[in-house]
Simulated assay, not measured.
Amino acid sequence: METRTTEIADGVYRLSTYVSDVAPPAGFTFNQFLIDADEPLLFHCGHRQMFPQISEAVRAIMPLERLAWISFGHVEADECGAMNQWLAAAPRAQVVHGALACDVSLNDLADRPPRALADGEVLDLGGKRLRWLDTPHVPHGWEAGAMYEETGGVLLCGDLLTHVGDGPALTHGDVLAPALEAEAMFKAMSMHPATGSVLRRLAALEPTTLALMHGSSYAGRGGKVLSDLAAELEAVAA
């Protein structure tokens, strides 16, 4: 496995590892996002077994010791499996997540106490501003959340709009249709009465870049893509 690095927005690096034997025949990408600022943040930790190559990819951009913050969308192996390895490699780094995840999981799982963020709270990285947004059960997990980088309009989406294959790092093309195909395959989304409103709240931010954990990131009218996703999911659930 090889981890490839692409700057998808100013100071936002996508670290992507393609695994061919997941979701064959297309395969699957596992993506992390490094936000370069005065206090750098890594969004998604990756699996424990992927830590060596992902950490090398980060080290090619900056010393690991510079990392100040570690976050992810929800508690799941591909998002936080290597969390404590990152904490060991970056002695001043702190995990940051929504209050619920800290209360139910991270206060116990993390080797150092995490910082809990309230819904809508902004983490100022110095040059970048990340707003935490609670997204309970969207795409899945009651502690789920997203982060919005306000200065560049980048939404760190976690598992939203997941799609298979090893496409370009950043696309202006259609990510909704591939995501709906993947959802038909995986059935990973949690559907409940608030799903549409949670997605439309994210859409109202009008992000210009959608940083997706699985698949190509998207540049363009991110708000429309998220609104369309809400409509498609509601139609399926009706």
Score class of each variant (00 low, 15 high):
55 S>G: 12
120 G>N: 05
111 D>N: 12
123 L>A: 10
134 D>E: 15
69 W>N: 07
74 H>P: 00
79 E>Q: 15
92 R>F: 03
148 Y>T: 04
119 D>Q: 12
166 D>N: 15
159 D>L: 00
164 V>I: 03
70 I>S: 07
119 D>Y: 04
105 S>T: 02
132 W>E: 09
144 A>D: 13
147 M>G: 05
135 T>K: 06
150 E>D: 13
125 L>P: 02
56 E>G: 13
84 N>L: 06
139 P>M: 06
103 D>W: 05
101 A>K: 09
144 A>T: 07
98 G>S: 06
126 G>L: 04
139 P>F: 06
109 L>D: 00
155 L>H: 10
67 L>C: 08
99 A>T: 12
77 A>K: 13
96 V>K: 02
90 A>M: 11
119 D>K: 05
123 L>Q: 03
76 E>W: 07
74 H>S: 09
113 P>C: 10
123 L>E: 04
152 G>L: 08
166 D>F: 10
109 L>M: 13
99 A>M: 05
150 E>A: 13
126 G>M: 03
72 F>G: 03
129 R>F: 03
152 G>E: 14
140 H>R: 02
161 L>T: 05
131 R>P: 02
100 L>V: 13
120 G>E: 09
138 V>P: 00
157 C>K: 00
103 D>F: 04
127 G>D: 05
98 G>P: 12
111 D>C: 08
164 V>N: 07
81 G>P: 06
68 A>I: 03
154 V>C: 10
163 H>R: 08
82 A>D: 00
117 L>M: 14
84 N>Y: 14
116 A>S: 15
154 V>Q: 12
56 E>A: 15
70 I>Y: 11
80 C>W: 00
79 E>C: 09
91 P>I: 11
106 L>D: 01
94 Q>R: 14
133 L>M: 12
117 L>Q: 02
63 P>R: 13
126 G>P: 05
146 A>G: 13
70 I>F: 13
164 V>F: 14
90 A>C: 15
156 L>H: 14
124 D>R: 01
134 D>M: 01
142 W>S: 13
157 C>W: 02
123 L>V: 01
141 G>Y: 08
67 L>H: 09
103 D>L: 07
165 G>M: 02
151 T>G: 10
104 V>T: 15
66 R>Q: 08
103 D>I: 01
132 W>F: 15
109 L>R: 10
101 A>E: 05
65 E>M: 03
75 V>I: 13
121 E>M: 01
164 V>E: 03
164 V>D: 11
141 G>E: 07
159 D>V: 09
80 C>F: 03
87 L>R: 06
77 A>E: 12
81 G>F: 09
76 E>I: 02
133 L>I: 14
135 T>N: 09
122 V>S: 00
73 G>V: 12
142 W>G: 11
164 V>H: 05
78 D>A: 12
62 M>G: 05
116 A>Q: 06
89 A>V: 02
74 H>M: 06
166 D>G: 10
159 D>G: 02
86 W>P: 10
148 Y>K: 11
154 V>M: 08
